[in-house]
Design a protein around this nucleic acid. Sequence first.
DNA 1: TTTACTTAGTTGTAGCGTTAACCATCTCGG
DNA 2: CCGAGATGGTTAACGCTACAACTAAGTAAA
Lengths: 159, 159
Amino acid sequence: MSDDVWLNDEQQRAWVRFISVVERLPGVLDSQLQHDADLTHFDYFTLAMLSEAPDRTLRMTELALVTNASLPRLSHVVSRLEKRGFIERTQSPDDRRATNARLTDAGWEKVEATAPGHVGTVRDYVIDPLDAQDVEDLHRVMGKILAKLDPEHGLRVQR
Amino acid sequence: MSDDVWLNDEQQRAWVRFISVVERLPGVLDSQLQHDADLTHFDYFTLAMLSEAPDRTLRMTELALVTNASLPRLSHVVSRLEKRGFIERTQSPDDRRATNARLTDAGWEKVEATAPGHVGTVRDYVIDPLDAQDVEDLHRVMGKILAKLDPEHGLRVQR
DNA sequence: TTTACTTAGTTGTAGCGTTAACCATCTCGG
DNA sequence: CCGAGATGGTTAACGCTACAACTAAGTAAA
């Protein structure tokens, strides 16, 4: 009965380590990007997602989905990036409620210039300490958790 | 050469899933606790760490360490929790610069009342989707990452 | 014991994210 | 075609966090 309520020792240990990483990692990513490119990690990720989209354009709703953000958060972030000239907003011709966000040339260059340093940080703190088996396990375990956190996304992957 | 700079496919997939979880999980934990107990996850974690300490007391610096927080952040959080009667601050007799934070009886009761719901959320989203092997792998992989993110802590564990 | 440095902690400010409220547009049943 | 509800997105207000500046106390060298 109480096993259903609390965690056993191995679960407890795993959880404590995991939540420590979850608390610390964003700060590490943010400070490298802030220092080197005056971007938050979320700013960078937003630009990066656009850079991979067809015509470097996505609707706000889709962009919110792939960046794991709420729409208000995304709207704020895009406003700031728009002021800095990295993104432009246009009305969608299909649906006049919809807004498309498009990466400008300046935005593209910003991503290209910023990516190597960011990937270096990801390597240093996450990828390089792991061997191939670890990476495979990380992928598998995060897949299971993500399926719970974001069922639609999870199902989309499994289809 | 370029292998050193970018990530291979398996690394890329693992990273994207991992960062998605890192972005989403705090929101899930926060909203359950906010809704059920009017606490952020960090508030709860702070109270929980104190509840496990000897005499339910820790110096601010130690508390910052175990909660993965900066001292300014902790100071603000403790101030709010103090106003709500969950924590009390006292001067350390040994070192007059130092402040001890102690969980009050009301704080203790708050943790006891809040823990089951929180653990339930952790179970739902993280532990229950995983089998025993997954939990073991999560523990191992997070250990390696944490050793990089927080070398002193990591060394302490490995000593 | 005076000076300089380090450590412990708090406070002010500015920026980011959440929630709630809001407007505009689309969809669909009657 | 019209009214109700759903969808797409923005904005305002508020709370939390990071960064910087600051106070106070301990430490150590001259």
